[in-house]
Simulated scan of single mutants.
Amino acid sequence: MRRIGIYGGTFDPIHNGHLHVISQLITRSLVDQLILIPAGSPWLRESAPLAPGLNRLAMCELALSELPDSIGAHVEVSDSEIKRSGPTYTIDTVLEIKKAHPDDALVLIVGTDAYAQFDKWHRAEELAKLVEIMVIDRPEFPGASTLDIGALNVSATAVRSGQTELVPDAVATYIKESGLYASK
């Protein structure tokens, strides 16, 4: 039985902190395969992502292409939530992945900030029965019972404000060429 990690987020944009989490999950063998899922329309978020879904998806693919093959070979980007209309619920994504991987264990990767709201998630009790929840400690949002992977204190807000050194070069170029965030 393989351990399939599910790592969702707005990735608005994906940054070096996200890539550090991905690298640690694979190199520490915490998961065998990782599915990176840019959110479509996250219903618990106060505001919609600034970049359109297809741009966030493209940035994820560009970022992953810069990872070493030993890591990148174990990671895929899914457009399942970007393609879905209406609010995107994690439970629906997990059920979809479970159909594709019926004999594998699913591991939901969340940061301490997201986990603090887990009781508000759509069908949270059912979701908790379908997956193992791995909570990653975030420097700016510490929590109890988390996995410390030496997370980087990087935020998408800083990137959107112009600190593009916090993203892989290919993503920084994409942001500039697409006129996203502070590059407008």
Rank of each mutant, 00 (worst) to 15 (best):
K98S: 14
E132A: 12
E165K: 10
V135K: 02
L67W: 04
L30N: 06
D119N: 13
S155H: 01
H20V: 02
A144Y: 08
T146M: 04
Q117E: 07
T173M: 11
A124T: 12
D113Q: 00
K120V: 03
D137P: 00
L180I: 01
W43G: 01
T27Y: 11
L64C: 03
H20T: 02
Y89D: 00
G162V: 03
V135E: 00
V75E: 04
G53D: 08
S80T: 14
L152T: 00
Q33V: 11
V75H: 06
A63N: 10
E126S: 10
E46H: 07
D119C: 06
P68M: 00
E125K: 10
T88H: 10
Y89F: 13
V135L: 01
I109M: 06
I97Q: 10
K99A: 11
L95N: 14
D119V: 07
S85R: 14
G72V: 13
H20P: 00
E76I: 14
S178A: 15
E81Q: 15
S65W: 05
M134Y: 11
D169K: 10
I26C: 03
P38V: 06
E61Y: 09
A116H: 02
S65I: 12
A151C: 05
S70N: 15
I26K: 05
I136A: 02
A100E: 13
S178E: 11
V131T: 05
H18S: 06
L54N: 12
T90L: 05
D92F: 14
Q163F: 05
L130A: 06
E61W: 11
S183P: 01
Y7T: 04
D32N: 13
T88A: 11
D169G: 09
N153P: 08
P49Y: 02
R28C: 04
G17P: 09
Q33I: 14
A124I: 07
D148I: 08
I22S: 01
S155K: 00
P68K: 03
K99G: 12
L44C: 03
S41C: 12
T88R: 09
E132N: 09
G5F: 09
T157D: 03
L50K: 13
G17S: 03
E125Y: 04
G162C: 02
I175T: 06
S178W: 05
I97C: 08
Y115E: 00
A116L: 04
L64R: 05
Y181C: 10
A73S: 14
V110F: 04
P142L: 03
P38R: 10
E46M: 12
K83V: 15
R3H: 09
G9W: 01
K98P: 04
L50F: 09
F118T: 01
T93N: 05
A128M: 05
G8L: 09
N55Y: 11
I109D: 07
V154H: 03
P49L: 08
A156S: 12
S78F: 12
